[in-house]
């Protein structure tokens, strides 16, 4: 299986030093366990992404674009030429704009399936397929079988990245392709204000302002309500629709059910 991992120029969340984003190091670990892997980075310098070599990547192709260029066209052109079976990316960048849109833009331009938030990958039973374990909210997992080629983004819940090793990095190679045509990125239409990150307490929307501490805790954590978890296993469409409607009514998206008989 031919795999390409998209690598970005990340910044350390605390020191802002250029580092390989953790998610991409996790993607590398998944990819290296699966098959022949190369890395792809589009940007003015290969240095931040070159850390991937220390995580076991043998070859990093660096598409040297100008500062401020949109990397998507360069990535798409290179992937079209390369035709990998599988493209892996982090679910979002680290440092920079961190929109998480790059994988979607690349997948759309390539016209391949995109599966978000993988935590484990395995070759499928049928040739040319891939089993993806996908992370869902609240710790749930979903197993999907995807027909290749596909683009898969990696979730932070995937296995922790392997260690960076200086000696391993020495054995890797960076191929820089100069003069890659790029188009200047569109300026962000929304003015963005940058502030240092400040940890904030988590807001607990459902917590009532009154009652004993135990009651408030139970309400906040769903301690009492969660006893009847609203998970339906293979419900009939009718049952499922009812459950959804009931939920939407309870949280106030839909108006309360109208009584069948109009009041006399």
């Amino acid at each position: 299986m031919k795999i390409v991992v998209l690598l970005s120029a990340g910044a350390h969340p605390v020191s802002s030093a250029p580092v390989l984003p953790r998610l991409e190091a996790q993607a590398l670990r998944l990819a290296l366990a699966l098959g022949e892997t190369t890395g792809l980075h589009a940007g003015p310098s290969a240095a931040p992404a070159a850390d991937a070599l220390g995580h076991g990547l043998g070859l990093l192709t660096h598409l040297a674009t100008r500062e401020g260029d949109d990397p998507i066209p360069a990535l798409v052109a290179a992937l079209k030429a390369e035709t990998p079976d599988l493209v892996l990316a982090g679910r979002r960048g680290q440092g920079g704009e961190e929109t998480g849109l790059a994988p979607y833009a690349v997948a759309a331009a390539l016209g391949v399936t995109i599966v978000a938030d993988a935590v484990a990958l395995a070759p499928g039973a049928a040739p040319g397929s891939l089993v993806v374990e996908q992370a869902l909210p609240k710790g749930a997992r979903r197993r999907l079988v995807v027909r290749l080629p596909a683009l898969v983004t990696v979730h932070p819940g995937a296995p922790a990245p392997g260690a960076y090793a200086y000696g391993v990095a020495r054995r890797g190679r960076v191929d820089t392709i100069w003069g890659v045509a790029g188009s200047a990125a569109e300026p962000n239409p929304i003015a963005v204000e940058e502030r240092p990150y400040r940890p904030r307490p988590k807001l607990m929307r459902s917590a009532p302002g009154t009652g004993s501490a135990a009651e408030r805790l139970a309400a906040a954590t769903g301690g009492m309500a969660s006893s009847g978890a609203n998970v339906l296993v293979q419900p009939t469409p009718d049952e499922a629709a009812r459950a959804i409607l009931e939920h939407l009514r309870r949280i106030g998206v839909l108006a309360p059910a109208v009584a069948n008989k109009p009041a006399a």
Partner: peptide, 13 residues
């Protein structure tokens, strides 16, 4: 650690 990338498991981070 440097040639085989096998420091103790918790040391990687």
């Amino acid at each position: 650690t440097m040639e085989f990338a096998r420091p103790p498991e918790k040391a990687a981070d």
